[in-house]
Design a protein around this nucleic acid. Structure first.
Lengths: 197, 197
DNA sequence: ATCATACTGGACACAATGTCCAGAATGCCG
DNA sequence: CGGCATTCTGGACATTGTGTCCAGTATGAT
């Protein structure tokens, strides 16, 4: 696998590099078709033209392959992040723009990694929340402020889901009413909104 | 399964009701231990003391059981929603408080349904985003406004992830920069923030 | 008490996982 | 170039889970 060169440099055998790249590409190619859960190791190997036993000499299982693939691409994102982070003005969050850019540049990759998990529990629940948000935002003529309605829907619904999951999982002593109050405040006024009305 | 009574009423056989309840409870009991993905139909049946063949006379597969379980409990949530929706003042979102309350009342249920999907792709990625948000919020002394920092982190990170996934999946013609601009605006000023600074 | 209906447990075919091996192929390096 | 270490291969194997089917038994409805 690793080769000790005479000059001390470590390199990876071409065959290894080739095989791993093939497997990673195959995974990314297959996810959009059937979803991550429905892709079998065998599918990946056939798509990659790699023997199944070879797969297991590189990755313990499908999840390991996915992890490694993520890792590789997050590394490339980090490089961007660093090189771009100079010219950030006084925006609130510095991490977001590089990520938006990376996502745009590697559209299909991100699509494969982010799109519906195959985990239908969440997807169903999220969709319900989005509907509720959409219904309420529709009356409020958000569009007039130049904010695309669907953008706001995704933003609010995503925030709500995350907060709900956190409140249920973590052991805060926030009451439901307090949780809602905080949620309403953030949704209405954002980070910049001071205390109370 | 359904029984046609002499008076025309439809009821469900007690045995059916019992079995389904047992299976649903079993699923909910097992998810926190190993995660949804790692629970097998056999596990559910053993936990519920129900024959495996019986399982398949009620549900096509594990997902069907999960769906039905969700359905039952979302129905109970809707009942609350309706009965509580009278006294809502002029808050921004009406759907949220009932949900927070329901989640609190059925803590373990929601925990089982919402907690980490077993879908490690998302969980890893989300955690990275949370770290980024946490780092940036730490400098900003959000806590001084009475907003718990971790609450804000969950809110912003959840919103960001949702918006990113949406931008990648849907075919909007928003540029990364525009997406970021909208995100920054919502994060900073919320729904109430008019156009521009 | 009768009888329609639901539950049971075991058998079956099938698909996917992960391990192992002996032989063929291929890149590394002297 | 040529020897050699390493990797790739394909097939066999045990194991686990899935979904279907059936004949026999239990149980709730009326």
């Amino acid at each position: 696998m690793k080769i000790e060169r005479t000059d001390g440099t470590n390199t990876i055998d071409r065959r290894v590099a080739r095989t791993r790249a093939l497997l990673q590409d195959a995974l990314i190619a297959l996810i959009p078709e059937r979803g991550y859960a429905a892709v079998s190791v065998d599918d990946i190997c056939r798509q990659a033209n790699v023997g199944r036993s070879t797969f297991y000499t590189h990755y313990a299982d499908k999840d390991a392959l996915r992890s490694a693939t993520m890792e590789v691409h997050l590394r490339s994102l980090n490089r961007r992040h660093v090189s771009a982070s100079r010219e950030t003005g006084n925006r609130l969050f510095k991490f977001s723009l590089p990520m938006f850019e990376h996502a745009h540049a590697f559209r299909s990759l991100h699509h494969a990694l982010l799109a519906s998990s195959g985990d239908t529990i969440h997807d169903e629940f999220r969709e319900r929340i989005r509907r509720a948000v959409r219904a309420e935002l529709a009356e409020k003529r958000i569009g007039d402020t130049g904010m695309p309605v669907e953008f706001a829907v995704q933003f609010i619904a995503g925030a709500f889901f995350a907060v709900l999951a956190w409140l249920v999982a973590a052991d805060t002593n926030l009451s439901p009413a307090q949780g809602d109050e905080l949620f309403q405040r953030m949704a209405e006024k954002g980070i910049g909104g001071g205390r109370g009305p």
